[in-house]
Simulated assay, not measured.
Amino acid sequence: MKQKNMLTWAISAIVYLGLVIGGYTVYTSLGSNNDHTDTHASKTNGNEEKESINEQAHNDNHTSQSSDGEDPEHSDHEAHSESEVVTNVKYEEGLIIIDVKDKDQNSPELEISHEKIMHLIIVSADLEDYYHVHPEEKGNGMYTQKFDLPENSYKVFVDIKPKNLAYQVSPIELHVEKGHDEHEENSLKVDINLTKTINEKTVELTTTELGINKDITLSFDTKGITPEPYLGALGHVVILDDKGEKFVHVHPTSEEKTVFETKFDKPGIYKVWGEFKFDGKVNSYPFVIKVK
């Protein structure tokens, strides 16, 4: 009897032990699966978050690069076009006085351009009167020119080449005696006839198609008479827009022809002065053209 009870106990113990081991195995397996699932989810979420951050960083960098790629270029462009030289002009009793200084108030060194250190273009407010003179250096950035300017309002353009400094020619207002404080609107009318005669010398202007942002050729037919050399060339051309703001000084494409090339960046009406020397005198031939 005792032996039978011990056998029963042993079998019960083995069964119990088996149940415990089996239950523990199942529990361990389930725990392992849960840990694996949680870890994978965490890694997935981490990667997605990381990819999202990287994508945002890429987008931010792309945006930043686009901005940095445009704004600095725009700023550089502005910086390059901004003049580092300041010019002031005044008129006193038949004397034009030009003061040229850099931003540190020093007098910059000027290079010679077409035989002159300075070309001074003076145009009346209505763009009718035109003068081209060459002031002389007096020292300390001062240049002077004796010239009797009639009573009027003018726009003056100081055409110079400062050494190692950026410079942009801009209009300077000049009022002589009772010249109007405000410029009246000019009434430029496009020339139908582009043939002009001055001092018995005739010049005819022909052009290629007048459009913006392309090379334009201006050909001046001097009717078989070769102009005399003037400032190292057969002629010079000055162009202003109808507001007298945009200034262009053009030189011939060669030493043997009165042919000039330029570009227009905006449509509008422009006045062109072709300067040619005949019989020791310089004639300025005015033409009004329209750029479409």
Rank of each mutant, 00 (worst) to 15 (best):
K4V: 14
L7M: 14
V26D: 05
T39Y: 06
T39C: 13
H40A: 15
A41H: 02
A41E: 09
G46Q: 13
K50V: 09
K50M: 13
I53L: 13
Q56L: 09
A57W: 15
H58E: 08
T63S: 10
T63R: 08
T63Y: 07
Q65K: 11
E82T: 09
E84S: 03
V85G: 00
V85W: 00
N88C: 08
V89Q: 02
Y91N: 02
I96S: 01
I97H: 09
K101E: 05
P108K: 00
I117G: 12
H119E: 01
I122E: 00
V123P: 00
D126E: 06
D126Y: 03
P135A: 01
E137R: 02
K138D: 07
M142C: 08
T144I: 09
L149G: 01
L149W: 04
K155M: 06
K155A: 05
P162F: 04
V169P: 00
H180P: 04
H180M: 13
E182C: 04
H183G: 07
E184K: 13
E184C: 03
S187L: 06
V190D: 05
I192R: 11
T195E: 14
K196T: 10
I198P: 00
N199F: 01
E200H: 10
K201D: 06
T208V: 13
E209V: 07
I216C: 12
L218M: 14
E228P: 07
V238F: 09
D241Q: 06
H249K: 12
V250E: 08
H251Q: 08
E255M: 06
V259I: 14
V259W: 06
D265N: 06
G268N: 02
I269Q: 01
G274E: 02
F276G: 03
N283H: 07
P286E: 02
F287Q: 02
F287P: 00
I289W: 07
K290P: 09
V291G: 03
